[in-house]
Amino acid sequence: MQGGIGNMGIFKDIKALFSGMRITSKHLGRHAITLQYPEEKWEMPERSRGVVVLLSDKEDGSLNCTSCMLCMRACPTAAIVIDSPRDPETKKRNLKKFEIDFGLCCFCGLCEEACNFSAIKLATKYEFSSADKDSFLWDVNKLQEVGRDVDYIDTRKKKKVAPKKETTPAETKSPEKKPVDQKGENS
């Protein structure tokens, strides 16, 4: 096994080495496929799963979230904490606290899938690293602020336009619940 070079003959070896060099030299004049990162950036594909944000209504700018807590239950790492006590009189939920701890979040996207109200999304933004652990805990205002310019397809609107088709309990409740988020946001 150690005598490989001897058996093959020196000319064959030299030829093999040169064929390797030829392949390398083919790449000499080519453009690099890498980017100079902080100055240049890749454009992220639309489905790219970056930071989790809360989406706001496209018209009145209020949060779409109805505090249904589905995302909290779907989250495998318990990164989402929602506190929304029911109003004892109106029996409606009041969004008091919505926090995501990005130190826990694994960017799996299950929260986005669980939400029926187009209220939470993994945006294509990245670059929110920090040396401070506490700064990973984002509250509702920050989540909403970062999500303001995130484009999304509002699936709620369709349900509002045609509420009579296939009314499931979740759908019928959605228009009633909507005003609650605005209250929640103001409080």
């Binding site: 096994m1 150690q2 064959k12 070896d13 093999a16 064929s19 390797g20 392949i23 083919k26």
Partner: peptide, 20 residues
């Protein structure tokens, strides 16, 4: 084809892998 050209017959690669 490029990959194979780089390694398959490279004498150093052969000594390091054949029969090892």
């Amino acid at each position: 084809a490029d990959y194979e050209g780089l390694l398959n017959e490279n004498p150093i690669w052969l000594v390091r892998t054949v029969g090892i």
